[in-house]
Computed example of a mutant assay.
Amino acid sequence: DLVLMDLQLPGIDGMEALRRLRESPRTADIPVVAVTAQAMKHDRERVLDAGFDGYIEKPISVRAFPDQVRGFLSDRQVGTE
């Protein structure tokens, strides 16, 4: 499992949505990757410090995206062995 989450959601921001996912025992261990147009250096640090497992900047590269997702999934499998 992997959640790709935009940080700018209608009615709730991605940080709050992540907090709620982490609070629930059913979703607490699912990796969550921020997908955002907020691409300043401090934005990346802020997102990772908030507890996201990864960070993908928009616009998404359609060529790189599948490998990025595979990378997050393989990192998770290595961590669970």
Rank of each mutant, 00 (worst) to 15 (best):
R26Q: 15
G14Q: 04
T80W: 03
A34C: 06
V69K: 05
D43Y: 03
D13C: 11
M40D: 06
E23H: 15
F72H: 12
M40Q: 12
D13P: 02
I60P: 08
D67Q: 14
F52C: 01
T36F: 02
L73H: 08
M40C: 07
R20V: 12
D43V: 03
P66C: 10
M5P: 02
L21F: 04
V33Y: 01
F72V: 07
V69W: 03
S74V: 08
G14C: 05
M40S: 08
E57S: 15
G54K: 13
F65P: 06
D13G: 05
V33Q: 00
D75H: 07
I60Q: 09
M5I: 08
L4Y: 05
D43N: 13
D43I: 04
R46M: 09
R20F: 15
V69Y: 05
K58S: 11
A37G: 11
P31T: 11
R70K: 13
Q8F: 06
F52G: 00
I56H: 03
D67P: 03
A28I: 13
L2V: 09
G54H: 09
V47S: 00
R22K: 15
S61P: 09
A37I: 05
P10I: 10
G71L: 09
A17N: 12
Q38Y: 07
L21R: 00
V47A: 02
F72P: 01
R63L: 08
D67K: 12
S74F: 04
R70P: 04
D6L: 03
S61N: 14
I56N: 02
G11Y: 13
P10M: 10
R22D: 04
L9M: 14
A50W: 03
I56L: 15
M5A: 06
L4V: 10
D49C: 03
I30T: 05
A39G: 15
I60H: 11
D6Y: 04
E81H: 02
A37Q: 06
P25D: 15
V78N: 05
I60N: 11
E23I: 11
P25G: 13
L21P: 01
V78I: 06
G11D: 09
F65V: 09
D67W: 15
D49S: 09
G14V: 01
V47Y: 00
Q68F: 11
E45A: 10
R20S: 11
H42R: 13
R46P: 00
R26M: 14
I60K: 08
L73A: 07
Y55Q: 07
V35T: 03
D43T: 08
F65M: 09
A28F: 08
R26T: 12
